[in-house]
Design a protein around this nucleic acid. Sequence first.
DNA 1: GTTCGGTTTCCTGTTT
DNA 2: GAAACAGGAAACCGAA
Length: 253
Amino acid sequence: MLDSFTHSSFLPATQFCDPLMTWTELINCDEYPPTFDHQTGSDPLWTSIPPEHWTKHHVCEWLQFCCDQYKLDANCIPFSQFNICGLQLCSMSKEEFIDAAGVCGEYLYFILQNIRVHGTTFLTPTEDIRPSTEHCEQKMPMKTVMVKREKNPSQTKAGVHSSHLWEFVRDLLLAPNNNILEWEDRDQGIFRVVKSDSLARMWGQRKKNDKMTYEKLSRALRHYYKTGILDRVDRRLVYKFGKNAHGWQDDRL
DNA sequence: GTTCGGTTTCCTGTTT
DNA sequence: GAAACAGGAAACCGAA
């Protein structure tokens, strides 16, 4: 159904956005929120109204947006089950999301909660919300990456593979209501893996690798010790962001 | 075609 | 005994 939507027709102004751009990157991107010049009049944008007020069409657009931006496998999402209005969508529990779309459902749930928690103001194109370049440089370490993208839109596809495991973990930690990872010491960047299997499943989904296990994922995490992205914590299932990890302090988007 | 970074996979041994 | 950790080694893959 949603295959009929193309990225260009749906989000024309996000052409420079990395489909795997992190949530933090996405909403701080100068190209975000998108402008919908072609959409005016009676059908307001889903970005401009609270999820509770979304129409079925808005929900549909949001799903497509999630697939595009977070590279979720659209084949795993039974769109017929999301042929509902925003109010019904918001009333769905995480379990219902998971029942409907498996791991993708879990991810969709997180994204929706993010929108609900932060309201729609951050999706509204106001000068106050959209960070200026200078402001962004001070607050957002990822600014450099974004500037590169703007300068060279042809690198968009390359950006798909710039999503690293530690960034995936970081973004999951920053997502509200996630029960897979939790902070042990927010200031120190110490966090704990609560549901190792779920984490591995989600990472496997992201990498299109259904053979991913927590054992393999943890090995990948341990590689980060060498590069200073993670520091060793001598406790089971507990990790700490190192000096070379950035963005994890930005819990306020 | 080569190099490189970032995993992924497999393994053995250790610790909890 | 199971689960998780530690880390070596090799393979894989996409980007440059």
